[in-house]
């Protein structure tokens, strides 16, 4: 299954890259969702898979009696999912507000910070004290 997941990770990542390269901010955000999923799956697969044995210690024991799933990647992914949600929510709101303010979701049309007709900065006049 790990091998299958490796292929799936690549597939999701590829789809995410394609979506993120789109001019539409909406598609870009879709790509962001997919790339988070791809990353989580990659971490999960890297920790190796154990079927049907959650990382729990039965009552009365001090350590798991049998082989259980790797707990470490699970802890990483759990927080990654929540953080990813925070990031996504923020990005969505950003896109939403950008659409409000700029009237477009075409990233190539969003040139507020980097206008196309950029004025070259005036070179600092030389304030040389002396010519030797």
């Amino acid at each position: 299954m790990e091998v299958l997941l490796a292929v799936l990770v690549g597939w999701l990542f590829g789809a995410a890259v394609y979506l993120m390269l789109s001019r539409s901010l909406v598609r870009y955000l879709f790509g962001l969702v997919l790339i988070s999923n791809a990353a989580n799956l990659a971490i999960f697969a890297s920790g190796r898979l154990t079927r049907g044995a959650p990382a729990l210690v039965p009552d009365g024991l001090t350590a798991p009696a049998e082989v259980v799933a790797n707990a470490l990647p699970q802890a990483l992914i759990l927080t990654a999912i929540v953080i990813g949600f925070g990031l996504l929510a923020f990005a969505f709101v950003l896109a939403y507000r950008a659409h409000d303010e700029l009237g477009t979701v075409d990233t190539d049309a969003m040139r507020v910070a980097e206008p196309i007709a950029e004025e070259k900065p005036v070179p600092a006049a030389s304030g040389r004290e002396t010519a030797v």
Partner: peptide, 12 residues
């Protein structure tokens, strides 16, 4: 702390 669950899941 002992069984599936926790702050993240509960909070959601």
């Amino acid at each position: 702390h002992n069984l599936p669950g926790g702050g993240f899941v509960g909070g959601l």
